[in-house]
Design a protein around this nucleic acid. Sequence first.
RNA 1: UGCCUGAUGGUGUAAUUGGCAACACGUCUGAUUCUGGUUCAGAAGAGUCCAGGUUCGAGACCUGGUCGGGCAACCA
Length: 563
Amino acid sequence: MEAAESKTLNFIEQIIEEDLASQKNGDLICTRFPPEPNGYLHIGHAKSICLNFGLGQKYHGKTNLRFDDTNPSKEEDKYVKAIVEDVKWLGFNWDGDIKYTSDYFNQLYQWAIEFIKKGLAYVDDQKSEEISLQRGTPQKPGIMSPFRSRTIEENLELFERMYKGEFPDGSRVLRAKADMSSPNMQLRDPVMYRIMHSTHHRTGDLWCIYPMYDFAHGQSDYIEGITHSICTLEFENHRPLYNWYLDKIADSKKVRPQQIEFARLNLSYTVMSKRKLLQLVEEGNVSGWDDPRMPTISGLRRRGYTPESIRNFSERIGVAKRDNIIDVGLLEFSLREHLNKIAPRVMAVLDPVKLIITNYPKDKTEFIELENNPEDLSSGTRELPFGREIYIEREDFLEDPPKKFFRLGPQREVRLKGAYIIKCEDFKKDSEGKIAEVYCSYDPETKSGTGISRKVKGTLHWVSAPQAIDAEIRIYDRLFSVEDTAADKDIDFKELINPNSLQIINHCKLEPSLASAKPEDKFQFQRMGYFCVDKDSTKEKLVFNRTVPLKDGWNKTNIIANV
RNA sequence: UGCCUGAUGGUGUAAUUGGCAACACGUCUGAUUCUGGUUCAGAAGAGUCCAGGUUCGAGACCUGGUCGGGCAACCA
């Protein structure tokens, strides 16, 4: 299967293949995706999901889904549910049951006691500010805590009393006895446990002390037999600590997990941090985590992205260790590539202008047969009503068109997609000077499919006026107006928000077959782009999102010509 | 003034581990087209952060710089 692919390996695959060759862990490969349930997943997490689960599949190994839930003050069950749904939607299956770091709280607690017994941990009675001060700076070594030399017995007793809830939050912590003068800040006696009288989404009030990330993550990997623990670059400095803890507990006969870091994804014209995304949600700049402008997986889903397109995108961007900003255009390319193959083509007029075919019989309605998708002939055909009065796109008629404008203008001819060639004879303006109606004649000899060889330069999409159904269409633009939202640290990212990222158009005219479309159904509105039904849509009022416009060569030359 | 880490077309990612820089997106031509989409054919664009060195030969190795990112939560 994958043997056919001769693609070069990324640096993580190289490590894995070397480990396989040296039989470091036999033939075993086990990865994990370890989200904290404190927010929604975004496209950056999708990269990590595709990486971890992809590696599991490629090397016939396993991939766990593990919630890293060591901080009950920030974590909620609703996030667990949303994350599970997103991972499934992306098309991945985890090995066995969903795992939680909180499953290991008891084991972690036992290990902490062992650390104390070996003289490797101590209870510190100081406030966090004091501890922080003593830690020093990257340039200046830290100084030792006055509580560092407590006896093992005293530490054991104090830690048990912490566990029993005898002390208030913040009054004491358990610290590792590592190296206060280490050039690596992470090793300056890191906190292992803190007191938190807070209800945990799974363990409730069973615990009032919780392990820190560093004391929990490597051990959780170890418990699960993870061979390659893949995380992002900001944890590079934590790797010595990850290994330090493991050194103290790992059985040499068991699998020893290896932490490997890669560069997180950054996308142009957006932000990719949970903190910033949360801020956008809470301050009402977007309608929620699943606002179609958000780079969240739920936002992309609502926008009309497909799991395939996101997986292909992840494959294309690669994996490396250098910082990067990927052009959002690449994401859109992957999207169009897939949608082009699967989205049924339909007719929809976003900004309608009425067009009357003056020589067409008044009461006649005929049915035009159109293929649903020229890229997929198995998708069949459908029939559309056609008559004397139709709607066309306002931008498809110009009173005084330039030479290379292949659409309608006075005395110009175009084809109506699937129907006839028409010629513009006249038009009417309203009191404001806007085009109100366009009058055309049609040539009955030019019906599509009848083998007429006469050609015209332009083809327009249209919707029959009497049968047209109304819809609201939401047009999205990039959420931010600059490519690199983090380029200037002095500018708050919220100042960079694009004020025109959402445009709502009402009374768009759709072909009647769209009346039964359901949320997340995807279509290509002929010549306009890809659209999907929004979850706000009802039978009474259809609502569509523009997922992404079609590539537009005309617009480009047009812009250049008008400069 | 420390430690960790990175640097290849506009953007990403490669270069079979020392053999004369490839692929994708984007851009630009042209063809086809009843979607100015798709498809097809082609082009431009980097001499690999800089300076030395090793070598017949360096993007890869060595030395010294420069620039970027990360690290001082009882966050993950």
